[in-house]
């Protein structure tokens, strides 16, 4: 367990840097994660994906298939890696405040 500093406040993250308490999530947290994930600027495309992931997770308590994520957000799989260098599972899900996916991820 560790913490990240978000505007002077220490927010708890797990061993892989994912948010521990989903209610800690806010735009400042996303900005802080983005800096750690080497994302220079958060665009509408990023937010579109982040918001989709959050909605999906709230409904189903799991991350969507990449297939679903791409289809629903209109973002190609390749472009996903341009937006989130760590990829959809470890990058996009982290920014969206989802817990780290279990399994061989």
């Amino acid at each position: 367990m560790g913490t990240i500093n978000v505007k002077g406040k220490e927010i708890e993250v797990d061993e892989d840097g994912f948010l521990v308490d989903p209610s800690d999530w806010n735009e400042d947290v996303v900005m802080a994660f983005a800096a750690l994930e080497e994302i220079d600027e958060l665009t509408d495309e990023h937010w579109n994906i982040i918001n989709y992931l959050r909605d999906y997770f709230n409904k189903f308590q799991t991350a969507p298939m990449v297939r679903k994520l791409c289809k629903e957000t209109g973002c190609s799989n390749k472009h996903m890696y341009e937006l989130f260098p760590s990829g959809p599972a470890k990058g996009a899900c982290k920014l969206a405040g989802l817990p780290k996916p279990t399994g061989c991820v």
């Binding site: 298939m65 990449v66 799989n77 990829g87 959809p88 996916p101 399994g103 061989c104 991820v105």
Partner: peptide
């Protein structure tokens, strides 16, 4: 194969 190839890494 590995489930993650379908779920997260289809490429």
């Amino acid at each position: 194969f590995n489930a993650r190839e379908i779920k997260y890494y289809p490429a």
